[in-house]
Amino acid sequence: LLEAKSRLEMSTKLEQLLTPSEYDEVVKRLQILHMLDQGIPQRKIAETLGVGIATVSRGARARKDRL
């Protein structure tokens, strides 16, 4: 993964490494972080992405820990 030089290459490597459902989960979690960074409310994120509020809250905690 560290050798990937583009988004496409990273995506291809992740698709080879993960099952389709794992890949989709990673994508959703990255979307959660991106939406949190944009200031979108947690409940709106959960509704938009079709995930539970606990999943969004977990992302918010991870985001807070990385800052």
Rank of each mutant, 00 (worst) to 15 (best):
L1I: 13
D24V: 07
D24R: 14
Q42V: 06
R66M: 12
R61T: 14
E3T: 15
L8W: 13
R58S: 10
G52P: 00
D37H: 11
L8P: 00
Q42K: 14
R7C: 10
T19M: 05
G39I: 01
A54W: 09
K5G: 13
K28H: 03
A54H: 09
G52L: 04
R43T: 13
T19Q: 06
T12I: 12
A60E: 05
L14R: 00
L1P: 04
T19Y: 03
Q38N: 10
R61W: 10
R7L: 14
L2R: 15
T19C: 03
E47M: 12
L2M: 13
L2H: 14
R58C: 06
D24L: 14
D37C: 06
L33C: 09
Q42E: 15
T55P: 01
L2P: 11
Q16K: 14
R7P: 14
L8H: 14
L14A: 03
G59P: 06
A62C: 07
L17Q: 08
V27A: 01
E22C: 02
G50P: 08
A54K: 08
R7M: 10
Y23W: 01
L14M: 07
D37N: 10
S21R: 11
G59K: 02
S6V: 07
A4Q: 04
A46N: 04
P20Y: 06
R66S: 13
E3A: 14
I40Y: 06
L33H: 10
K5T: 15
T19F: 01
V56R: 02
V51L: 09
M35E: 11
E47V: 03
G39S: 05
R43C: 09
R58T: 09
V26G: 02
Q38D: 11
S57M: 07
L33P: 05
E3G: 14
K28S: 06
R66Q: 14
Y23R: 05
A46V: 01
V26R: 01
E22V: 01
I40P: 13
K44V: 12
A62S: 10
K5F: 08
E22T: 01
A62N: 10
E9F: 06
Y23V: 00
R61A: 12
K28T: 01
I45Y: 03
Q42G: 08
K64Q: 15
D24C: 05
D65Y: 08
K64G: 09
S21G: 06
E25F: 02
R43V: 15
K28N: 07
E9I: 01
D24P: 00
V51Q: 09
T19G: 05
A60D: 07
L8K: 12
L30K: 07
D37Q: 11
V56N: 04
A62M: 11
E22L: 01
K13P: 00
A46F: 04
E9T: 02
D24G: 09
S21F: 06
R7H: 12
K5Y: 08
L8S: 14
R43M: 11
E47R: 13
R66C: 10
L36M: 04
